[in-house]
Every structure is written in C-alpha cells, then in structure tokens.
Design a protein around this nucleic acid. Structure first.
Lengths: 179, 179
DNA sequence: CTAATCATGTAAGGCGTTACATGATTTT
DNA sequence: AAAATCATGTAACGCCTTACATGATTAG
C-alpha cells in the first residue's frame, strides 16, 4: 500500500467527498500535508474501490462521466486506523533553496542576498495566510483536542511553524550576507 | 535539467569527489538537503560527463571498474552559478507524521500520544546530533560568511531549526492529547 | 459570448526506490 | 574465516508530473 492510498483514506476520514473535492484540497498542501495530481488521484480511487477500501454513490455529472461521491468502507476505516498508529516512514527533506545554499560560495553574493530577501517575503505571505486560517479555526473551537477538527488544526499549526522557521532562516541569511 | 543534476554540481562545487563519496554524503540529507540513491547517481554522473558538465580522472579501482574522481568543468561551474541565483522551485512538503495527524480522530488516542512521544524522542536525538556538528563547525570558524564552508554551515542551521520545530510540535501534541 | 468552474478520465515519459551483481582490500 | 568497506555499475518496477481530452453549467 502506497502512502498515496493512505492519504486518500485520510481525506475521506471525516465524510464522503468526490474526487474533484479531494483534488482541490490536495492542491494546497496544508490540510493533508501531502499532495497529488488529479491524474494520480482518479485512477487510484478506482483501484481502491476494486480493492474494497472505499465505495461510492454515482449520479449523472456535468461532463460525460458520472459524478461519484466516495466514502470509506469498514475495511478502509479499519486499515486507516491501523496505519495511523504505526511509526511513520521518515523520508528525507528535499528543498531547492537549502540545496542552493550549500554551494552559495560559487554564486554572486548580492544576487544570493536578493534571493533570500525575496524568499523571506514569499514565506511571510504564506505564514500570514496560515495564521489567518489558524485564527478562524480557533474561533470555531477546533483547537480543543476533543473537536473532530482538531487533527486539521494541528496540521495547520505545523504549517505555521514550518513557515516561521523558513522566514527566520532566510532573514538570518540576509543579515549574514549584508554589508 | 533535473534538480538531481544541480545537486551533483553542488556536491562538486568545493572540489573533486568520487561517485562513492557523493553517495555517502547523500545518504544523510544534511549537507546537501537533497538525497539520491547510488543507482540514480552513477548513471547521472556518466550522462553529465557526456554533456560536458563534469570530467574525471580514472584509475584502477578495487573492483572490476575504474575509480573515477569527478570535477566540475568550466561549463558545469557556469551552469551551477547561473542556477543558484534563480528562484527555487517550491515543492510541496510530504510528511507521513503530519498526514497521520490530519486523521487523528479515527485512531486510538493513547496510541497516538505514544506515537508523538516516540517521534519527539527521535527528532530530539537528531537535533542533538546536528547541534554537536554545529558546535564543531563554529569552532572551525565556518559560521563566518567569508568562510568557504559557510554554505554548509547555513544548511546545517536549517537542519537544526527544522528538527527543533518538529520536537516542539510533537511535544505540544503529547500535551494536548494528555489526560 | 467568453471564460471559469465542476467533474472525470487517459497517455507518455521522467524520476526514484529496491534489488541484484562484481571483486579487491581491510577489519574483526 | 567472515564481515565490512571501497567502488562502480545494471534491471525492474512503481510513483509522479505534464499534457491532453470531454462536456455541462454558471459567472462576467
């Protein structure tokens, strides 16, 4: 079972969704902290249906295909619950900006400084976005561990923390390369 | 040009290395903040040689093949320097632990708490390791922006910050799920 | 009337992982 | 004597991205 399969089970844990809705949510990583393209999602949903992990109601859709609302089967829910408590596979981080930093000595210093300044700004914008979402979630009471949306809230907090880390690191580099 | 190619150019920016040495360094992500398997690295090095980005001296090796010490060509160095100042491609983070967190409501609460406690411990061990490396680097003077190793030092600092973020987040979850 | 949104699907090709294979030298 | 290290390579397969394709409804 690939992680994509589990990501799709996770997506459906709180209630039925169409493939299209999953695609929308997976476009922006926050929410699931996992992404996939639609060309990966649709065939996988259909294979998972064959394997009995999910099921769907079909109704006439806007295009030439039926609109399918997918939900977890009992098998799927049990498999998800089992997987959740397993220790996660650690996959190495891959980040082009940090990779570039390693070889920074070869590049023009002022150009690199400008790069970190620009990246700091992008990450700050992303941080502000997440912060606004966090405030909304807290207003709804999602920050209480008993809330059914607490998992999504905790995921969002990771996004906030990660963006803050990037902003600080970029700004530190701007300072270091200054003068 | 794939990011792997640039990662290999980055690896060679400070001096010649054999494929084997690159493999060793790419096994542990810190250093380059990028990883690859040897089965990816060796064919790519040979294609990069064909394309004139790198060159090598060959000498009789321990096994049936020659031992090759690779270095950047002028073309390779120029291409690396050009790429470094380009804005990095943002690739979505993929993290199984955070993914699991999204669907946390479906799992046994105590089991999840134990999971976060165990993960906090792993990340703390990694953090301590990086912290020790950071102290060594500072003792060598790598933390000075004029040092040729400043890039590696900055990369290490990102590793430290990222691990610290994970430890804090895991410990916050342990507290939230407590009682 | 044009563009965006909803909704699902296929095809091609590149990127990455796991596994296999060879063989000399050094360490336990 | 066995295992680890040095050193390079190939093969198979699965994951993932980019691009293409259809067509109804709603918004500008």
């Amino acid at each position: 079972m690939s992680t994509l399969r589990y990501a799709l089970l996770c997506a459906l844990h709180a209630g039925p969704l169409t493939g299209y809705e999953i695609v929308q949510r997976m476009r922006r990583p926050i929410g699931y902290y996992w992404t996939a393209q639609q060309s990966q999602i649709y065939p996988e949903l259909s294979r998972m249906t064959d394997d009995g992990l999910i099921a769907h109601d079909a109704a006439a859709g806007p295009g030439p295909h039926d609109r399918k609302t997918h939900r977890l089967t009992e098998t799927g829910l049990a498999e998800l619950a089992r997987w959740l408590t397993e220790p996660p596979q650690r996959r190495p981080p891959k980040d082009e900006l940090v990779l570039k930093t390693y070889a920074l000595a070869v590049a023009d210093r002022d150009a690199m400084r400008a790069l970190y300044r620009a990246e700091a700004q992008k990450h700050r914008a992303q941080l502000d976005d997440y912060l606004a979402q966090q405030a909304q979630a807290e207003a709804r009471g999602d920050d209480h561990p008993a809330s059914p949306r607490f998992g999504a809230y905790a995921t969002l907090r990771m996004g906030v923390a990660a963006e803050r880390t990037m902003v600080d690191w970029c700004e530190w580099l701007v300072l270091q390369l200054g003068r």
